[in-house]
Simulated scan of single mutants.
Amino acid sequence: MNNQSPIGIFDSGYGGLTVFKSIAKQLPQYDYIYLGDNARSPYGDHSFETVYQYTLECVEWLFAQGCQLVILACNTASAKALRSIQQLDLPQKYPGRRVLGVIRPTAEVVGHYSKSGNIGVMGTRGTVNSKSYLMEIGHFFPAVKVYQQSCPMWVPLIENGEHLDAGADYFVDKYLSQLLAQAPDIDCILLACTHYPLLVPKIAQRLEGNVQLLSQGEIVANSLADYLKRHPEMESRLAKNNSRAYYTSGDTQSFDEHASLFLGEEVRSERLVNR
Rank of each mutant, 00 (worst) to 15 (best):
D226M: 04
Q149R: 08
S269A: 12
F171S: 01
S150A: 10
Q92C: 03
V109K: 10
I85N: 04
M1P: 00
T18V: 05
W154R: 03
Y113V: 04
I119F: 12
D187R: 10
Y246K: 04
N160Q: 08
L157Y: 12
K145W: 04
S260G: 06
E162V: 13
R244M: 15
K115V: 04
V102I: 13
V220A: 07
C58N: 15
N274E: 11
N118C: 11
E257H: 13
I23K: 06
E57R: 07
G250Q: 10
Y14H: 13
L263K: 12
L17M: 11
L272S: 01
V146L: 06
S114P: 01
S78G: 02
A77S: 12
V19Y: 08
V110D: 01
I119E: 08
F10M: 05
D256R: 09
T127V: 10
P201C: 05
A79K: 08
G8S: 15
M135R: 09
L190G: 10
M234P: 01
Q26W: 02
Y30E: 01
Q182S: 09
Q92M: 04
C58D: 08
I137K: 07
I219R: 02
Q86N: 05
F141D: 00
Q148G: 06
W61C: 05
E159C: 14
G264L: 01
G13F: 10
V146P: 05
Y147N: 07
I9M: 10
I103R: 08
L72V: 04
K115R: 10
G13M: 11
G16Q: 04
A79Q: 02
